[in-house]
């Protein structure tokens, strides 16, 4: 039983490394220019190329950043959940650093989505905030992962127990998402129905293209920020270990 388990874990690590290592090695060369180009393309496209929406007017151009940010925040929290699970299996503190970094980025993205949503909502719906299903779900997600960061901050950078506890919160927080969606969806709903992923896209071609650029830009930005934050957390862990070792040597 334990031998089989060890073989499975070894295969798992091999797959993770062969898949992720090339991406990881190219991170500083590829991600910043890709992010920059895509973000510039999105901004130019949203302001100049995309047609003016007839009913909502100029404020509708917020869509090109609001929709990608709101969608990709789920990806950031997914990275947190997966990295937490890998940390719990292998107990490698580097995965804890990645999980923590991804949660920080996800918090930033959800906060930005809520903010742009409020700016967009005032002229369109007449209110900054409404208790609509997807708004509420995003707010709850924001609160859950704020709790994750608080729980992780209870211990220092190398506190393995706090890292394990936070990892559990990161995982059950993500499994909770479908339940949150069902409950708030049945609770009430006002948000426009999804028009992008419908069988026949209801958006005109130019709008769809700019939105696609926005998705790519925000995706690369998120990946870049996660690697930055993750590396920073990892360096903090190492600095903390060096400091502890120095204290030890001084006392000796």
């Amino acid at each position: 039983m334990s031998a089989l388990w060890q073989v499975l874990v070894a295969i798992f690590w091999w797959v993770i490394h062969t898949l992720l290592e090339p991406i990881w090695n190219a991170r500083w060369v590829a991600l910043p220019p890709l992010t920059g180009v895509m973000m510039m393309a999105m901004i130019v496209g949203a302001v100049l190329v995309a047609p003016r929406e007839i009913v909502e007017g100029e404020v509708q151009r917020l869509m090109y950043i609001h929709v990608p940010v709101a969608t990709i925040s789920y990806l950031a929290f997914f990275v947190t959940a997966v990295a937490s699970a890998i940390f719990l299996i292998g107990r490698d503190m580097r995965w804890d650093a990645i999980a923590r970094g991804a949660a920080t980025v996800g918090i930033m993205l959800t906060a930005f989505a809520l903010l742009t949503g409020a700016i967009w909502g005032k002229p369109t719906w007449g209110v900054y905030w409404s208790w609509d299903a997807r708004l509420t779900a995003t707010l709850v997600l924001f609160l859950i992962y704020s709790g994750y960061l608080l729980a992780r901050a209870v211990g220092g950078p190398n506190d393995e127990q706090a890292a394990r506890y936070a990892a559990v919160v990161g995982i059950i927080g993500y499994i909770d998402i479908p339940l949150i969606h069902f409950s708030v969806d049945w609770w009430r709903t006002l948000h426009p129905q999804r028009i992008i992923f419908a069988p026949k896209p209801a958006l005109p071609g130019e709008m769809l293209l700019v939105l696609l650029l926005g998705f790519l830009g925000i995706l690369f930005l998120t990946l870049w920020l996660i690697t930055l934050r993750g590396t920073t957390e990892y360096l903090v862990q190492r600095a903390d270990r060096v400091r502890a070792r120095l204290d030890q040597l001084e006392r000796a």
Partner: peptide, 8 residues
């Protein structure tokens, strides 16, 4: 920690 998870 618990109350946001308990929203549903």
């Amino acid at each position: 920690l618990a109350l946001p998870l308990l929203v549903p």
